[in-house]
Design a protein around this nucleic acid. Sequence first.
DNA 1: TATTGTTATACTCTATAACTATA
DNA 2: TATAGTTATAGAGTATAACAATA
Lengths: 157, 157
Amino acid sequence: MTAAAAKGGEDAGGLSEGVLGGLVGYRLRRAQLKVFEDFLASFAPLGLKPAQFSALVLIEANPGRSQREIAAALGIQRPNFVAMMDEFERRGLARRHRSQTDRRSHALALTEAGEALLRQGRVIVAAHEARIAAGLSEVERAELLRLLIRLGTPAAD
Amino acid sequence: MTAAAAKGGEDAGGLSEGVLGGLVGYRLRRAQLKVFEDFLASFAPLGLKPAQFSALVLIEANPGRSQREIAAALGIQRPNFVAMMDEFERRGLARRHRSQTDRRSHALALTEAGEALLRQGRVIVAAHEARIAAGLSEVERAELLRLLIRLGTPAAD
DNA sequence: TATTGTTATACTCTATAACTATA
DNA sequence: TATAGTTATAGAGTATAACAATA
């Protein structure tokens, strides 16, 4: 760290950060932008964005759940999840089955193609994680996850 | 932590998180959403959003810098920063002065009203920080900031 | 030629109201 | 009445191309 950075904080262009550097929210935003940038590039070959990947993971881990349940778990508004499911079905990655107990709701499940894509996704995401956490030891990465969970896990509300 | 959460991860609705729970990018996104939610509510009385607050802080800490420099430091595209500066001038918070050395660029500075608003903002942001980091010790909060900087500081590219 | 601020524009994300079919 | 999925829509946020003034 430079002397200037130690005093008030200074960015790449030589500008002082003022109070920003010490704000968790500001650091979160900058870190997330950078991590998502790497994710987007990593998953471009699979044609998946972060929200789509997380939705597929959640559907696979919780087959038979409704759109409302999956969307809520991801913090996605129900109306906005409709288009995502439409695309999943169009690409043959997931399907909506009529629930046997409540004909209003859709029981979601991955297709074979969806499972296959997720297998590729898990390989890619592992490389992505290793890349973004390259400057951290395994202990530090675990500590970062622990602190982030304490900050933001909806379940901890 | 519940037994289920220890195994594969489980959210508030009882859904398994699958691989998501161990991903830095996913945890960053969820944490940032929650933190920004608190920020937005905290700063509603001042009429400032996170990007606006950070821009005002940066202008105050670096008076005389150009729009391009301030925008670049925040990761904002130059065209998108124009409307933000327009609003700052309309509300009397900041001004664009013609640079004496390069008549193409604008030397930015806060007005008295802008400085006054920022003084209120710094009080509010301190309370906001205390609130979101309530579950963390001071050591943990410092460690979180350190790890986030390692992940995402553009200067560390 | 290159750069600053600007305009226009488009694309994505996100949020809300209202409809339908079921419950 | 209330809920699940859906449609329509509107508002942010973000990205690029192109122009005028200036370097």
